[in-house]
Amino acid sequence: MTAGVLAAVLLLAVAADACAGGTDYGAGFWDLTAGGAERGKRPRWLIDHAMAPVWEVNNVWLIFVLVIMWTGFPVFFQTVFLAMWLPLALAAVGIVLRGAGFALRKPTRRLAGRRVYGAVFAISSLLTPFFLGAAAGGIASGRVAPGTEPSAHAWSNPTSVFFGILAVVATALLGAVFLAADAVRFASPDLHAYFRWRAVAALAALAVLAVVTLFVTHGDAPHVWRGLTHGAGLFFVIVAGVATLVTAWLLLRTSGAWSRVSAVGIVASAILAWGMAQRPYLIPRSLTVAEAAGAPATLHWLLVVTLVSVVLVFPAVVLLYRLDTRGTLEPLTDADLRRGSGPEDRG
């Protein structure tokens, strides 16, 4: 019972990381495709302002995922990280380089330095979700199992490749939708149109890729295919489809808070559909939730810690997101600092 609850928490944490972190990766995708220094100046300006308050806190979800995997399902953790150490290592390096590039490019005064850090940020934002998606595809296709030796076959198969591409396109969709809404907040109608139409293009690409990937799983990941076309997995596939139509309708009309909700619904429903399709396995046909679970005492304490974390951390993160989307967390400008340094402020 406890193992099943923690497996559900793990799936929800993966969905949260895909949506929150995916939005940041998507911003990096559009940073990469924004063009040269002059042409991409305004899109990159919006990306910097939109990401600055929240990009670090989004890593909380990834840490949560790793802690639950490592502590609650050690066999699963060992199996995945042993068999697919290379894509996961590349993803980890990408996370570090991406954060460093984003943090260092803005304060760097030399144009050449800003370009280097900007390129590191943008390229890492593209490669990291691809490798994470490829690893998820290796799990979904059942190519890893306890005792599996590291092999490129585990993450370079058809399911892995399409999962990786889907991850990149899904992050591009989230990034464009959130940036279009942020453009409204910053009173920038040109950027609103710029990102809104890119969101429409990303949504169309995601819909086509999702259908193709579904048919790929038919021959390459039959257990997941059956789960996606029956029961709870099919339910969340339908939810993702409805959310796609709603998002398209909202984007063609305008772009605001509701398009953000529906876009998040697409990605979250797709993750939940994948998780439901694998039941009762963590790795299809080789490792069930019960077989991968740690000691009962460990699981009980992990559940307690998880509940405490939800009570203490979740409301704070939600408040941060709410303040950010309302524009309350705008950074001080040079003019603000100069206004705050007069004699009357020091007295």
Score class of each variant (00 low, 15 high):
residue 5 V to H: 05
residue 6 L to H: 09
residue 8 A to I: 14
residue 9 V to E: 07
residue 11 L to W: 10
residue 14 V to C: 08
residue 18 A to P: 10
residue 27 A to V: 03
residue 30 W to K: 12
residue 31 D to L: 09
residue 38 E to K: 06
residue 40 G to Y: 07
residue 47 I to A: 00
residue 48 D to L: 00
residue 50 A to P: 07
residue 51 M to N: 09
residue 51 M to C: 01
residue 54 V to P: 03
residue 55 W to H: 01
residue 59 N to V: 00
residue 63 I to Q: 00
residue 68 I to S: 03
residue 71 T to Y: 06
residue 71 T to M: 08
residue 74 P to S: 06
residue 77 F to S: 02
residue 78 Q to K: 10
residue 78 Q to S: 10
residue 79 T to N: 04
residue 82 L to G: 07
residue 91 A to C: 02
residue 92 A to W: 09
residue 96 V to A: 08
residue 99 G to A: 03
residue 103 A to C: 02
residue 109 R to C: 04
residue 111 L to K: 07
residue 116 V to G: 01
residue 124 S to M: 00
residue 128 T to I: 01
residue 133 G to W: 09
residue 136 A to T: 04
residue 138 G to M: 03
residue 140 A to C: 02
residue 141 S to M: 11
residue 144 V to Q: 07
residue 144 V to P: 14
residue 147 G to M: 08
residue 149 E to R: 10
residue 150 P to H: 06
residue 153 H to K: 02
residue 155 W to P: 08
residue 157 N to T: 06
residue 160 S to V: 05
residue 161 V to H: 01
residue 169 V to N: 05
residue 170 A to M: 00
residue 171 T to R: 01
residue 175 G to Q: 02
residue 177 V to L: 05
residue 179 L to A: 10
residue 182 D to I: 04
residue 184 V to K: 15
residue 184 V to F: 05
residue 186 F to M: 04
residue 191 L to V: 01
residue 192 H to R: 01
residue 192 H to W: 04
residue 195 F to V: 02
residue 204 A to Q: 12
residue 206 L to Q: 00
residue 208 V to D: 11
residue 208 V to G: 05
residue 209 L to C: 12
residue 219 G to M: 14
residue 223 H to M: 09
residue 225 W to V: 15
residue 226 R to D: 15
residue 228 L to M: 14
residue 229 T to L: 14
residue 231 G to I: 12
residue 232 A to Y: 14
residue 234 L to M: 11
residue 236 F to S: 13
residue 243 A to N: 12
residue 243 A to K: 07
residue 252 L to F: 09
residue 252 L to D: 13
residue 253 R to M: 11
residue 262 S to A: 05
residue 263 A to N: 05
residue 267 V to N: 04
residue 271 I to D: 12
residue 274 W to G: 10
residue 282 L to Y: 08
residue 284 P to H: 13
residue 284 P to R: 15
residue 285 R to K: 06
residue 287 L to Y: 03
residue 289 V to Y: 04
residue 298 T to W: 03
residue 302 L to H: 07
residue 305 V to C: 15
residue 310 V to Y: 12
residue 311 V to E: 10
residue 312 L to D: 09
residue 315 P to G: 12
residue 317 V to M: 07
residue 319 L to T: 09
residue 319 L to V: 10
residue 324 D to S: 15
residue 325 T to Y: 13
residue 329 L to R: 14
residue 333 T to G: 01
residue 334 D to P: 08
residue 336 D to S: 07
residue 345 D to H: 15
